[in-house]
């Protein structure tokens, strides 16, 4: 049964990945405009255009080009940057560190803030705390990431001088410099996520707290925190984790903006740089990678559910 679920779930991810590949490929090849001309600029000669077209394989039929591109990717070849001529995989490898650090820190902030807030709001349903959490989550959705970034920079970096306003230090340079540079970006990136997950936690907890087994847990004299976090939160976890997975795309959008505000040399900046320099090979690869990563994350979440909760396997 388990195996059948795994295979079925894996198979259903294949067409989605295929569509992502078509979108990433089609963006450049199906939209009006000659890629060779975009690479060379308006003043290119016909000779140069023809040479670049041949070099890029643009004179081949579209399905053949798609096949070549896909074949390369399946063999770990993401292509070569049109601007710097460096392999795309190396360019991405150079930038992945800061982004992973930022994402992990933001996730830590989110879990540390959103889960307790959501649980508290559900526990004190209708009370002032509940409304405050709701107001906070509306604010978190409404304050743009880059606006919050500048508010934090203005307050904690320029005025109070607690944190650095710009740049990145690797954790290898020591924990203090790393946190001095990472705290504000992590809070900035986490803001939307905190709003989303606090809301979801509250909604899911409200339902679970009405269940009979919660009354039983209380009746047998368990301490309230234990009831909330051990009994209720565990059972409320499935929709919360689902939102974490589907929020991944939102997180990547946030990374692009946060890295730009705080001048962090990560993948987000690579996205903007590749667009500004019209480096299509790089853009294609980045779209494909983030899309596939999204599918993989959600696949893993589904499989984790199936492992822990047999009811899902039988649906």
């Amino acid at each position: 049964m388990m195996l059948r679920f795994f295979v079925w779930r894996l198979a259903s991810a294949v067409p989605v990945v295929a569509i992502i590949a078509v979108i990433a490929f089609g963006l450049l090849h199906l939209t009006p405009g000659d890629p060779a001309r975009i690479v060379l600029g308006e003043n290119a000669t016909a000779e140069n255009l023809a040479a670049v077209r041949t070099a890029m394989g643009l004179d081949l039929p579209l399905p053949v080009q798609f096949g070549h591109w896909l074949w390369g990717i399946l063999h770990g070849d993401l292509g070569v940057s049109m601007i710097s001529r460096a392999p795309v995989s190396r360019l991405i490898g150079q930038r992945i560190g800061p982004t992973v650090a930022l994402a992990l820190c933001a996730m830590t902030v989110t879990i540390a803030v959103a889960l307790p807030l959501g649980v508290l709001a559900a526990w004190k349903r209708g009370a002032l705390v509940d409304r405050a959490v709701l107001a906070l989550s509306v604010l978190g959705f409404s304050v743009p990431v880059f606006v919050l970034g500048y508010v934090l920079i203005g307050t904690f970096a320029v005025d109070l001088r607690w944190f650095a306003a710009q740049g990145y230090r690797s954790p290898a340079d020591g924990l203090v410099p790393f946190l001095r540079h990472m705290t504000l970006p992590a809070i900035t990136l986490a803001s939307t996520y905190v709003a989303l997950i606090a809301r979801m936690t509250r909604a899911s907890m409200v339902e679970v707290l009405d269940e009979d087994y919660i009354r039983t847990a209380r009746a047998k004299g368990l301490a309230e925190p234990r009831v909330l976090f051990r009994h209720a939160l565990r059972n409320a976890a499935v929709p919360i984790i689902t939102v974490v997975g589907s929020g991944f795309a939102m997180m990547v959008s946030g990374v692009v903006i946060t890295e730009s505000v705080f001048n962090i040399p990560g993948i987000g900046r690579l996205v903007v740089d590749s667009v500004l320099s019209r480096d299509y090979a790089l853009i294609q690869a980045l779209i494909l990678l983030t899309g596939v990563l999204y599918v993989v994350i959600n696949l893993l979440i589904d499989l984790a559910y199936a492992l822990t909760d047999p009811r899902i396997r039988y649906q």
Partner: peptide
């Protein structure tokens, strides 16, 4: 729905930014 799933997997800003780079 598979096309929609594919579109949803790509972060909105990334897709928008890429489209603007081309046109």
């Amino acid at each position: 729905m598979r096309v929609m799933d594919g579109l949803m997997a790509i972060p909105g800003i990334l897709l928008a930014v890429a489209l603007i780079a081309i046109v």
